[in-house]
Amino acid sequence: MIIRVRQVAAACALGAALTACTAAPEAPRAARPAPSAPAVSSRPPTLAPGPAGLTPVFKNGPRAHARTVALTFDADMTAAQGPRAAAGERFDNPRLIAALRALKVPATVFMTGRWAEEYPTQARSIGRDPLFEVANHSYSHYAFTGDCYGLPTVSRDRMRADVEHAYAAFRKAGVPDARPYFRFPGGCYDREALKALTPAGVTAVQWDVVSGDAFATDADAVARQVLDGVRPGSVVVMHCTRSAAPTTERAVRTIVPELRAKGYRFVKVSELIGATGGRR
């Protein structure tokens, strides 16, 4: 905030007869220091810890706060999928990111560390674009519980390290300020997983609208599922992986104008969490 201070000084006016001013000039007043602007925290908003200090879980923003909605995109790649990428399989989706930019849609990208390693230029571009924020989706995309959509499992004693490994991969790729938000691979978690991540200081982010874009072939069906499910404060889960979610870009091009026509405003997850005031 720029504050202008006007100094008002008394002046003597020359009369019509050019008589001299007889009043002694007023001594200049010391300028008052401009009030300092209140300190603004640069730390992204997070939720207060859950019961027994467990990692808090965020699902959606306040329903009555505003007609806001957060589109989130999981940039999935497991630690073991390097050979598939080397053989030509694409786990990125540049056209989706380009569409979000063209539509001016803020979004949160939950990125695995392995994805950032495979596509460092794209990770850096997303991470440095103020339209987006990068959040943590683990390094390996291995499950944090057993029996989670057939994913390999990370052991309890490696869970925190897996999350921190992802943040290190983001920094190496040039992502300047990844958010302290974490999405469990497959959305699978239990009390032990929440306990293991408590020292990491993250807020776990789930969702209340499933887009159904994973392995979908009908973009219209994906768009309709999102449009039917969105409510004020919703978090929508989608994917930023061409091979596993080939219809997402086309669905987004339908979803965005229709939600805007209904009065919705697109925001990042951080804004929805901030609207809670830190309450779960």
Rank of each mutant, 00 (worst) to 15 (best):
H239M: 05
F144P: 00
A27Q: 10
A116Y: 03
P35K: 04
A223G: 03
R158P: 06
G278S: 07
R90E: 12
S140N: 07
L71D: 03
D76V: 11
S42I: 08
V235M: 06
A24H: 07
T22P: 02
G53K: 05
P180H: 08
S140Q: 07
Y264G: 06
S270D: 13
G212S: 08
A123I: 02
G187K: 00
A204E: 05
A79W: 00
T22Y: 13
A23S: 12
F144M: 14
D92S: 06
R183K: 02
R171V: 12
A34D: 08
R280W: 12
P232Y: 03
D74W: 11
I255P: 09
A244I: 06
P120E: 14
E26T: 15
S125K: 00
D208Q: 07
A261R: 10
E249K: 01
L14F: 10
I2H: 13
A166R: 08
R84P: 00
M77Q: 11
I255F: 10
S125L: 13
V252N: 00
A24E: 06
P44D: 03
D147Y: 06
T248C: 01
R90I: 10
Q122P: 01
F132C: 08
T78R: 15
K172R: 14
R265T: 15
G82L: 07
N136H: 02
M238W: 02
G274H: 03
Q7Y: 05
V154A: 12
S42V: 11
G15M: 10
A143S: 13
T241C: 13
A30L: 14
G53H: 04
P180R: 09
D157T: 04
E133T: 02
K172V: 13
T22D: 15
R43V: 14
E133F: 03
E118N: 09
V222A: 04
T108C: 11
Q206L: 14
A30G: 14
F144D: 11
L197G: 04
C21P: 03
N136L: 09
A135C: 09
R90D: 14
V236W: 04
E192M: 13
A79C: 08
A34I: 11
R250D: 12
T217L: 13
F110N: 07
G50Y: 00
P94T: 11
C12R: 05
R231S: 11
Y181L: 11
E117Q: 12
V267Y: 07
H137M: 10
G146Q: 12
R280C: 14
V163L: 14
D208Y: 02
P25R: 15
P38D: 03
V267P: 05
T78S: 15
M1V: 07
A79L: 12
S138A: 15
T22E: 15
T46M: 15
A98L: 06
A102P: 00
S138M: 10
V69L: 13
L103K: 04
A169I: 04
I3G: 13
S234E: 06
A219M: 03
P28M: 14
T248R: 00
A204L: 10
G187P: 01
L18E: 11
F73H: 05
G174D: 06
M159E: 09
A244C: 09
G15Y: 00
N60G: 10
P257E: 05
E117P: 00
A193K: 01
A87R: 13
A178H: 01
F73R: 02
V109R: 01
A13K: 09
G186H: 03
A173L: 02
